[in-house]
Design a protein around this nucleic acid. Structure first.
Lengths: 332, 332
DNA sequence: ATGAAAGCGCTAACAG
DNA sequence: CTGTTAGCGCTTTCAT
């Protein structure tokens, strides 16, 4: 039925080993032999069985990618970065959504190891102790993309969330604001979120601005969440005049909430977001946003993983990509 | 090093076959034996090797997913639908981006078959003859999601693009417009695009409105493309007073283009989009949009694929999901 | 209910 | 430069 390496060998009057050599580009084959084999391969439409190859060689040229939710812009961008570099190095991607659920992450890790992936790229907002343990016990290399593990034992690619957030809040302070809100997605247990929060507090403290818990809002990070957050915020005795926002979608929700309530961005409320996806330009005014280079994070994470898989020397286990703030209309 | 089924068998004083049976939930095992084996499995932390299993059983429980670009909202939503159902049926997904490039699609198809996937879900705007041929020659089932193949030989899941588009244009006509533009992404060779275009023309014709080629714009379908398209459209002697748009991102670009030029949506220009992603609500006015149920298309496509993979009877090779128009502020 | 044994299709020494 | 020969870890008859 299906054509095997054996069929090719027989038809070409050579051994399986020789066929294997030409298929794998081994140089130790006489050109004439190679040609003959190649012809038979073409004629028989032989297609190497990667599963058999994987079993024999203990390499599958597949890498596992575990992300929270591919339908989220943020992750999709990251995934594309991973995929492009994976393709470049001839790896395929086994993709799975974890929904930020520890149990799923653990079970996914197990499934992928069962499938004998050569490595894993994982994005998890919350690297729990259990995940930590599983990752460390992992027989193949893992790199975390856009996530920080607390013990620092696991390779990762990130930007400097703390300083990026600090700069954003400081910009708002420099513009004369004292009522600055921080609206973000889930904060609890999320390392990135905690960094942003800490930076927010530190920046205010440094400027001797009192921290008002009413100005710190952690919702689900969605557009509707933004809309709703403004409703609540605007009812405060002293509503904020500036907001540092956790992501673009949320920021757009806030902008619209503010505008729907008859106020102006940036005149009444200045906004600085954190992400700078293409969404940032798809609202009026356009969003000033901390540039989170998701595609690059994914790409670098995958590149790093290839080094580990090749057992190459890795100089930097924790890569920090540069960040900057893209100034647009939502801030002055 | 790694624990194999043989190690478990030895430790449990049974044969490999028995271990295999308990791992695979075969009922022909005495409860006591099962318990004993399970204990050893746990103690040794045995994890079945899916690659070896795949080679022996000729089933990999992996399915290939080929989509144009995962970082595009549209595809990401579709991918999530596919993934959820795949997970439900215990399949893993090998994901790859084709960038709508025929050569890549062909090579991806080949790679996936090499990896012995049990089935393939593919999304391709343009099912060329070569793709067609490759798909028909495919040894495993394939289903097209959100794409139509011309020969109808290949299973697919879609909505009725023609009628959906027809209704949208007719709505615009009913609202009294005679200068109605059609702005979309690439049209050439894209079956869906052609359906929309045909519907657009037919609807105008039916209403005795002359077709003006200057009102038919096919760009790359991006936000910037929308911005630019309006610039061109507005310079026409008789600019359009209504636009039927190919997708949400493009529509938002048009809305902003129109607003930037000092005009009002929907008072000066009415807009009906085609997609209804979450973006549709993330602009003011919100977009009236034909509902393209991408998640569902993905989910149904994957479900259909499971039936083919199980060799179940399939009543409908071509599934047409219902569509409707979600009325919002961008149209009257 | 359990075991023995023959592969699945390929790679990787090793020998020549 | 080429062939021989073991496996890789598991499933699957076929016996018992």
């Amino acid at each position: 039925m299906t054509v095997t390496i054996y069929d090719v060998a027989r038809e070409a009057n050579v051994s399986m080993a020789t066929v294997s050599r030409v298929v794998n580009g081994n140089q130790n084959v006489k050109p004439a032999t190679r040609k003959k084999v190649l012809e038979v391969i073409e004629r028989l439409e032989y297609r190497p069985n990667a599963v058999a190859r994987g079993l024999a060689s203990k390499k599958t040229t597949s890498v596992g990618v575990i992300i929270p939710d591919i339908s989220n812009n943020l992750n999709a961008e990251l995934a594309r970065g991973i995929e492009d570099i994976a393709t470049m190095y001839r790896y395929n991607i086994i993709l799975a959504n974890s929904d930020q659920n520890e149990e799923k992450e653990l079970s996914l890790l197990d499934t992928m190891l069962g499938k004998q992936v050569d490595g894993i790229v994982m994005m998890s907002e919350e690297v729990t102790d259990n995940i930590q343990r599983a990752v460390e016990a992992c027989p193949v290399p893992i790199v975390l993309a856009g996530s920080i593990s607390s013990t620092e034992k696991v390779a990762s690619v990130n930007i400097d969330y703390y300083n990026a957030a600090f700069e954003a809040v400081e910009t708002l302070i420099d513009n004369g604001h004292t009522r600055i809100a921080f609206v973000s997605g889930p904060l609890q247990y999320t390392v990135n979120g905690q960094h942003k929060l800490a930076a927010y507090k530190d920046a205010l403290e440094k400027a001797n601005i009192e921290i008002d818990d009413a100005l710190i809002v952690a919702g689900d990070g969605s557009y509707d969440d933004g809309l709703e957050s403004w409703e609540n915020l605007s009812e405060l005795q002293q509503p904020p005049t500036a907001i540092f926002v956790g992501n673009d979608e949320l920021a757009i929700g806030l902008v619209h909430g503010i505008q729907d309530s008859g106020k102006n961005v940036p005149d009444d409320v200045e906004i600085i977001s954190f992400e700078n996806s293409k969404l940032a330009r798809m609202v009026r005014p356009k969003l000033t946003s901390v540039v989170l280079p998701l595609y690059d994070i994914g790409a670098v994470a995958m590149r790093l993983l290839t080094k580990y898989m090749n057992k190459e020397e890795v100089e930097q286990q924790h890569v920090i990509l540069p960040h900057r703030i893209e100034k647009r209309g939502s801030s002055k």
